[in-house]
């Protein structure tokens, strides 16, 4: 993006083994992500995309390796991971809105309890976000009264209410009906244009082409190839990447 790049996340030699090493979900992944960069991760099912993304905020504890966030190794012992997670928003495939709370309560809970904002401050901010994503009138609705696309847009702004430095997306549109995918991608595109650092696992190649600064291709727990969208989509080198692209186009 800019000339003086500032690294915000740096993963070094991440490994995640299951069943005593029988399953290697991640087998040594290293990656540096700059502030403001939009990174899209693609790859076949089971290649370790989710595991990698979830390692970044330690929802998965890596078997080995380090994750530097703002220069701090958050995978080390005795790190208050909760403080760091506040700065890393995450959006899930299945939204995970809190069903017992209204949209507004979903969005203000964490800012009030964790950032010690007053309820009024938090609400003002939340309503501002709701207006931006066109859901201002749903503030008092419960998640069960929303469509999938609406739920996911709420999930995104709920994370944004914590004013994160990075947003992590794990297949945010995969659980949506096709006609609802666009509205969520639009929100993500807008977010990218504000300069937010984003790491997205997605199968939406159109989004990757249009928005990504860099595309990462993962396979069997390692990064096989990476580069600009042009390079990845028009001049893929690795045979497995070529095969993958053929299979999805």
């Amino acid at each position: 993006m800019s000339d003086n790049k500032e690294c915000i996340i740096k993963a070094v030699g991440l490994k995640k083994y299951y069943k005593g090493g029988e399953i290697k979900a991640l087998d040594g992944v290293s990656l540096e992500i700059d502030k403001g960069e939009v990174v899209v991760i693609i790859g076949p099912s089971g290649s370790g995309k989710s595991t990698f993304l979830r390692s970044l905020n330690l929802l998965e504890i890596p078997t080995d390796g380090s994750i530097f966030f703002d220069g701090v190794d958050i995978a080390a012992k005795h790190v208050d991971i909760n403080k760091h997670r506040q700065k890393m928003g995450m959006v899930f495939q299945h939204f995970n809105l809190f069903p017992h709370m209204t949209v507004l309560q979903n969005m203000t809970l964490a800012p009030v309890k964790l950032l010690k904002k007053t309820p009024e401050e938090a609400e003002t901010k939340a309503l501002e976000f709701l207006r931006k994503v066109g859901l201002y009138d749903r503030a008092q609705a419960y998640p069960s009264q929303l469509s999938g696309g609406q739920k996911q847009r709420i999930a995104i702004v709920r994370a944004l209410c914590m004013e994160p430095e990075v947003m992590l997306f794990d297949e945010p549109t995969s659980a949506l009906d096709p006609e609802l995918v666009g509205e969520v991608l639009d929100v993500m595109k807008n977010l990218a244009s504000t300069g937010m650092t984003m790491v997205c696992v997605t199968h939406e190649m159109g989004f990757a082409r249009e928005v990504a600064d860099r595309v990462i291709f993962m396979c069997d727990g390692v990064i096989v190839e990476q580069g600009t969208p042009e390079k990845i989509f028009t001049a893929p080198e690795n045979p497995r990447l070529r095969q993958f692209l053929q299979s999805i186009l």
Binding site: N57, L59, N82, K83, R85, Q86, M88, G89, M90, F92, H94, N96, L97, F98, L109, A110, K113, L114, R158, A159, M162
Partner: peptide, 12 residues
Amino acid sequence: GQFEAGRSLGFN
């Protein structure tokens, strides 16, 4: 997913 959503927001 409810636990994960809570934890990802920074709740212990």
